[in-house]
Simulated assay, not measured.
Amino acid sequence: MEETESKQTLYLVMGGRVADPRSVTFADPESLHVAGVFSSYDAAVDSWRSNAQRTVDDAEMKYVIVHLHKLLDPGA
């Protein structure tokens, strides 16, 4: 069957307290804040930026953008 639709892109924005500010190892993964899932990178960056700026004074808080579409289809 021929694929006729384009690949969907999904981005997850999440954050929480990290064990070391130089890493992305979260100290308590069960308490991560999930800011949302976005279909465009620009929307994900906007969400990441607003959450990161909100916690800018806390060096142990980190927000990241996860490319979900790369995890869902690693061969693409």
Rank of each mutant, 00 (worst) to 15 (best):
A43K: 15
L12S: 03
H69D: 08
S50D: 13
V45G: 01
D73Y: 04
F38V: 03
P74Y: 00
K7Y: 06
L72P: 05
E60Q: 15
L71W: 04
E30N: 07
L32N: 07
E60P: 00
T9R: 09
E2F: 09
H33S: 12
A52Y: 02
R22H: 10
A52P: 03
M14K: 10
K62L: 06
E3I: 11
D46W: 02
V64T: 07
Y41K: 14
V66D: 10
S40L: 01
V34Q: 10
T9M: 05
K70E: 14
S50H: 14
V66E: 09
R49A: 11
D28Y: 13
Q8W: 01
E60L: 12
D46N: 15
G15D: 02
Y63E: 06
E2T: 13
K70D: 13
V37Y: 14
F38H: 12
P21Q: 04
G15A: 05
F38M: 02
E5A: 12
L12G: 01
G36K: 09
R49H: 10
L68K: 00
G75D: 05
Y63N: 03
V56Y: 02
D58E: 08
G75N: 06
E3Y: 10
M61T: 12
G15M: 04
G15V: 01
T4D: 10
F38G: 06
V34L: 11
E2C: 06
V45D: 07
L71P: 01
D42T: 09
Y63C: 05
L32I: 06
G75Y: 04
S50L: 13
E2Q: 09
L72M: 14
S39C: 14
P74L: 01
Y11L: 04
Y11E: 03
M61C: 08
A19F: 00
P21M: 03
W48K: 11
E60D: 13
I65K: 10
T9F: 03
A44Q: 07
G16H: 07
S31T: 08
F26C: 03
D42H: 09
T25A: 03
V37I: 15
W48C: 02
V18T: 05
V13M: 06
A35I: 13
W48R: 13
N51E: 15
S47A: 15
A27G: 00
A35N: 13
L32R: 05
T4N: 14
R22F: 05
R49E: 10
R49M: 08
E3F: 08
L72V: 04
G75C: 00
D46F: 09
V13S: 03
E3M: 07
S39D: 12
M61F: 12
R17Q: 11
